[in-house]
Amino acid sequence: MELTRLLLILSTVAFVVGVVHAIAALRAGRWQENKWQFLPMAVGFAFQCAFLYLRGEMHARCPLTSQFEVFIFIGWCIVLLYFLVGATYRLSLLGLFTAPLIAILQTLALLMPDNPGAVKHVKMSVWEHLHAPLAMIAYAAFALACITGVMFLLQDHLLKKHRIHALFRQLPPIHHLSRAIMRMVALGVLLLAVAMISTFKIHLAISAVKMTVSWSILGLYTVILLLMWRHTLSARHTAWLSVLGFMVPFLSLWVVIGR
């Protein structure tokens, strides 16, 4: 087995262990006492970093050359943003909701064909190096907005049903979740806008399909952000928008990669 594939498997196992550990701690009522909640996520992230480093050395560029690598890179970006924003937005349970998505993304990647030898080594400008990573980080921000939206809808459901149990007590307040959703969507829109503007400064050929899909995603999330900012819809409806909206960039990965 190749070292990179082994690292990916170990990373996926770490995220699954994190989910199992978090659920066990919640059911036992030991979540607040547990100081090692972040450890499985940190271990999985470390294996992701090692994987991306080796692939980057192999290609002499950012490892975004196939669907296989794109799925891992987006997963890495999601975990990175989780560490950066989780504490800031007081989303203590964000890891529990994030880890399953990462495990699914990496499992899908493991099922995909990998052909690193087909990559052409070409000299790239700074903008060309930044374009794809910025777009992927934007997608990661949209993914976290989706995950936070799921947390909001779960909290809203539990409140309406008057179900008070261990999970309910650990979920952040509704208003924290609502603000976090809007900030993650805003971050994603900003990064994707910069990534798309950079296309005017790069010389690599980008297909019409990829450009159309990418600009459409930017337009969709810009509308979602405006609706959130103007409070046109209720917080519950905007949470649904953040969840359902992520289906578009997620499904687009099968359309734009390799075109």
Rank of each mutant, 00 (worst) to 15 (best):
K120R: 09
S92W: 09
L96Y: 02
L54F: 05
P63I: 04
L101E: 01
A132I: 10
L101R: 00
I72R: 07
A109K: 08
S125V: 08
M112A: 11
M58D: 05
S66T: 07
G95M: 11
F68I: 01
E128T: 04
G75P: 03
E128R: 00
P116A: 08
F71K: 11
L108C: 12
F68W: 09
I78E: 03
C62Y: 08
C77Q: 09
L101G: 03
L54K: 10
V85G: 13
P63C: 10
V119L: 13
L94H: 02
M112S: 13
L84C: 15
L84M: 14
A60N: 10
L64Q: 05
H129A: 07
P116K: 06
L93N: 02
L134E: 00
L134F: 04
L84W: 10
D114V: 08
F68E: 01
M124L: 05
Q67H: 11
Y82C: 09
S125L: 04
G86T: 05
P113W: 01
H59W: 13
L80H: 03
L111F: 11
L84Q: 10
Y53M: 14
I102F: 01
D114E: 06
N115S: 11
V79P: 07
V85M: 04
A132S: 05
L110V: 04
Y53P: 07
T88Y: 14
Q106P: 00
I78Q: 03
P133K: 02
P116L: 03
L64T: 06
L130Q: 02
L130P: 02
Q106S: 09
N115E: 15
G117C: 11
I104Y: 01
I78K: 05
Q67W: 10
G75Y: 01
L81F: 11
G86R: 02
P100C: 06
T107G: 15
V122N: 11
L54M: 06
E57T: 15
S66A: 11
M58I: 13
P116S: 09
L93F: 07
A99D: 02
V126Q: 05
H59E: 04
F83D: 12
V85N: 11
V126E: 12
A103Y: 02
E69M: 11
L105A: 01
D114S: 13
A109V: 05
L108R: 04
L134K: 06
L84T: 14
H131P: 03
S66N: 02
V119C: 08
F73I: 10
G86Y: 05
K120G: 13
P100K: 03
C77E: 06
I74D: 03
V79K: 06
C77Y: 00
M58K: 09
H121D: 08
R55L: 00
N115R: 10
C62L: 15
L130E: 08
L101A: 14
P113C: 07
I102T: 03
P63G: 11
E69G: 06
V70W: 02
M112I: 09
I72C: 09
I104V: 13
A99Q: 13
A118I: 14
W127I: 11
G95P: 00
Y82M: 14
A87I: 08
T88L: 12
